[in-house]
Amino acid sequence: MGAIDCYPNSKLKLQSMFLHRKSTNLISKAKEVALVAHPHPHIMPSPTIRSSAANLTRTMAAINKDGIGVDPHELDAIFEQKRSLRSKVRKALKNMDPILRSQEDNAIQNIVVESSWFKASKSLCAYVSSPALLEVGTSRIISEVLSSSAKERKKLYVPRVEDRNSNMKMLMISSVKDLIEKSMNILEPASVDSDGNQREDVMQASDPVDLFIVPGLAFDKSGSRLGRSGGYYDLFLKNYQELTKKKRWKQPLLVALSYSVQIIEDGAIPITPFDIPMDALVSPAGFIPISGAALRRCE
């Protein structure tokens, strides 16, 4: 497999990193995720809402499957560290040279659409990028899927925010015309198609999804992801992973797209029991496998 598919790190080192990440991650102990959120998973809430969300999250995060309490004071420190890190990353993104941003957008999307794991996928969930939020672009990825012949076309599900309680659906689209503008000009699928029929919800689909293309504010090479504080993706991914276990389906590959300025030092992203780790990253430098599933894609 070519360099476009695998980041030039040794597999042994990555496997060790993944095992360490699994041993220290509290996600497997989380019993429930409860977040008081905001109108959209990409938009920061007001200080008042954020404070209420943090208080409720601290309470719920203190309970896990083993009945072991998580120190609320430790969670206070984690939330404060996350707020500080989000501020720094947003500043770095705003200061990013537009030409460099465009070059990295093209490089990242080229890596995705040319990769063996993308080509092999039959069904995927992907975010619709928003320029206003300075997210890595996904327009070419979405176009690549939707422009394929009907016989070869992958199923594509994109996010639709349902409420202020971190609930989000992934609905199937067959054309960019299926998307409508919401707040901050963010495109989301209408709940029904042009014929008035309900769109297929990935949670009710008869077949599993192979791949998730996930956004975020910051990432590290051990799989940690820093979102925008809404909890939408963490909750949705948790629910979908539980569904795949119940159905005995293969877990989808979780791949995050990241500008170079969004990848930070390992261990710098504080994690909580409800943070879902990524299997791999795609940066301008290439595909960075993290989990065992992602490592196997490089073999």
Rank of each mutant, 00 (worst) to 15 (best):
S191W: 14
H38F: 13
I269W: 03
V282D: 01
L14K: 11
K22F: 02
P47I: 14
S175Y: 09
L35H: 08
E74S: 10
S130Q: 06
P47S: 06
G267M: 11
V282R: 00
S148F: 04
T138Q: 02
I290K: 00
K221W: 03
L243G: 05
A62Q: 14
A92V: 07
N239S: 12
F219T: 02
L93W: 02
W117T: 06
F236C: 01
D201A: 05
V214C: 00
V113F: 06
L237I: 13
A150I: 02
W117M: 03
R164D: 09
S260W: 12
G292P: 04
M184H: 13
V209K: 02
W117V: 09
F287Y: 11
G69V: 05
M184E: 07
G227M: 07
K221Q: 07
D71C: 08
G267T: 11
D275L: 01
D210E: 09
M184L: 11
I108Q: 00
K169D: 08
K177R: 15
T272P: 00
Q204G: 12
A256C: 07
K11A: 12
Y7W: 06
L26W: 10
T24H: 10
V113H: 05
A62F: 09
S229W: 09
L281A: 00
Y240G: 00
S87H: 13
G137S: 10
A268M: 12
Y233C: 03
H40M: 04
A256P: 01
Q15H: 08
K245E: 06
A37M: 00
A54T: 10
G216E: 02
R86W: 04
D97T: 05
V113M: 07
S206K: 14
S283R: 08
E144W: 11
N110W: 09
D195W: 06
Y127L: 02
F287V: 15
N25H: 13
L211A: 03
V202K: 02
R225T: 02
K22D: 07
L26Q: 15
